[in-house]
Design a protein around this nucleic acid. Sequence first.
DNA 1: AAGTGGTCTAGACCACTTC
DNA 2: AAGTGGTCTAGACCACTTG
Lengths: 251, 251
Amino acid sequence: MRDSSLSPSSRLGGAVISDRIVSALLEELRTGRYAQTDRLPAEVDLAAELGVSRTVIRDALSEMERAGYIERVRGIGTVVNRSVLNLRSRLDQKLEYYPLIRSFGSYPHADGIQIYPVRAGEELARDLAIEPGDDVICIKKRILADTTPVIYSIDYLPRALFGNRDYTRIDLSGDVFDVLERECRQQVASNVAHLKASCGDEPIRAAMRLAPGEAMLLLDEICYNRLCHPVMRSLSYYTNFFDFSILRKLL
Amino acid sequence: MRDSSLSPSSRLGGAVISDRIVSALLEELRTGRYAQTDRLPAEVDLAAELGVSRTVIRDALSEMERAGYIERVRGIGTVVNRSVLNLRSRLDQKLEYYPLIRSFGSYPHADGIQIYPVRAGEELARDLAIEPGDDVICIKKRILADTTPVIYSIDYLPRALFGNRDYTRIDLSGDVFDVLERECRQQVASNVAHLKASCGDEPIRAAMRLAPGEAMLLLDEICYNRLCHPVMRSLSYYTNFFDFSILRKLL
DNA sequence: AAGTGGTCTAGACCACTTC
DNA sequence: AAGTGGTCTAGACCACTTG
């Protein structure tokens, strides 16, 4: 029943048409035909115009609603939230800080890197779904945007992720997400972060060049791969260089 | 084609069957048949067992995936994320702090309440989609959990939301979400928060009884109703009494 | 080859809002 | 009454993973 000419050349993994529709609608909303409107056309109209079934349109709109760009109201229509549309630095959507720093036009790099092995205690073992006493690699470093210190990060990676290789011969100094992907074939799909405000201890404050009265966001995170298996625990201190936003919705 | 006997007595607004399925599955995952497993049955099996079409199952699973409880992997199945399942205090899901404080078994109440009118400046007017110079009601207060100060909040509500009524005769001292709903017929559907770490100024630190070296989360929020119209701006200082977690996912 | 989730169609009816 | 989004069915085929 499906016209396969609609989904050709799909080297992509998952959604094809409906993802393309999301991109197209976001583009139209930002700079195109729908840039001035606060309502999208009715679902049936969109479906007719784009030559797909209403289900496809609804899939696309569901994704956009999940991200907060629109709100669908029964009997009314599809309403646009322009404020959300213009947000950058969404803490709930972005996981990696290297691309984030680049998006500000700054050059991300690390210094003061320390790498050493530790043995997992009770808590770390539970967090990483390993046994207490198992080997864990700890990576501490300071991240700068150009010359400004913006993050102090402490990462814990299960030694087992590197198999039998000698991890001391692997370059662990770059973006830890790249390391995980390149060296461990692990993609981080989601991440649970506990949020605190922290002033940090003296060495960290000095490293981050904090003025008195300045505080940092402390993100205590566990990263999971697609199969919901933990692959990393991180503690990251973020200065207020970042203007993180998050979308909060009742579910 | 639809058997209406499946959706009886639906005083509920939206989803009926699929919402019931979400609740049932979450219950089974937490304390029932699926409490020990890390995979849910295949979609077709769930559909057959529950006597609904696969679409309904997929709607339910989509909602659960959005919340982070499960991850669906093509060719593999539906994987459970037990860590997310056990989270409380999700900053991305909860908007109101009164119920949150209650969920810790504490009694939420406010003191030091100040209410006064202000005129909107450029920024506030833009945030609230009103004109500069328009009347805005400012509510400042301290929130306590039992006897511990946990939040200092500053709320800005457009005067126009109260129509012609004399707002000084309205009780604005309780949960501001209740006030919005009861007095303004406005339900907050979503909320964009900008996150900072802050030490606060001296009066606030004193009011919150902060020790030296303690910092607070500062949430700078704009609340929207279902129609994506802003209804409130808030600045809230949260002490680390709260252990907020958030789910971060690539979209 | 078998099994899983992902996409899509075509059509039906329900619930809510507005005129 | 007309229009909107919300729910649901029944069935098809695609893409990926595993044995």
